[in-house]
Simulated scan of single mutants.
Amino acid sequence: MKALFYGWLFGVPFLLIVGVVRRASSPEFPDPAQTAHFATVTGRYLVAALALNIAVPLIGMAVAWRRGEKAWTERFIRSLWWMAVILLFQWALTSGSGQPARDEDPAPRVTHCIPISGGRQCPGG
């Protein structure tokens, strides 16, 4: 149980960090197929990390419960609980961040016209 717990605790963040670093990098490949492959592998790292982040604690909780290891069952339940709390906290913080910025400055009022060279005059005379 210890290996499963610590493998999850350190393995999932490693996969997430690798995926985020790959996502943030902008490698230049001469072939579009290589670029597509790079993006596919990056997506697989992130999907694997997110899937393992849920699956491993659930599996660990089930195995610990079946083996009658109360302490490990409680650890896996606490880890799932804290993941849910952090997810809700993140959702609460970022729920309004997708809104576009409002234009706070009013449109300037035109009070005079400056003629442009080339024979064009100001509108209205």
Rank of each mutant, 00 (worst) to 15 (best):
V63E: 12
P100M: 07
Y45I: 00
R66E: 13
P13I: 10
H112Q: 12
P115H: 04
Q34D: 10
R66K: 11
L4A: 11
K70M: 15
E104F: 14
A51I: 11
R66L: 15
P57Y: 03
Q34G: 03
V12I: 15
W65M: 10
C113Q: 01
K2Y: 14
G124P: 00
G43H: 04
Y6F: 12
K70L: 15
L16I: 07
A49Q: 05
G124Y: 06
C113W: 11
L87F: 08
L93G: 07
Q34Y: 01
W81R: 08
G60I: 03
A49G: 12
G96N: 13
E28D: 09
Q90A: 06
W82H: 11
I77L: 15
A24V: 15
A33N: 01
T111A: 07
P123M: 07
K2D: 15
W72E: 14
K2S: 14
L16F: 06
D31N: 04
F29R: 01
S26C: 00
R102C: 00
V18E: 05
T40Q: 10
G124R: 03
A55T: 11
L4Y: 05
R102P: 00
N53L: 15
E69K: 04
I77M: 12
A62W: 08
T42A: 03
R120P: 00
S26A: 09
P32L: 01
V41T: 09
R66F: 13
A36K: 01
M61P: 00
L52M: 08
I77Q: 12
T42L: 02
T35Y: 02
A48P: 00
W81A: 08
L16T: 05
L80I: 15
T111Q: 05
E104N: 12
V21I: 14
K70S: 15
N53E: 13
G119S: 08
R75N: 14
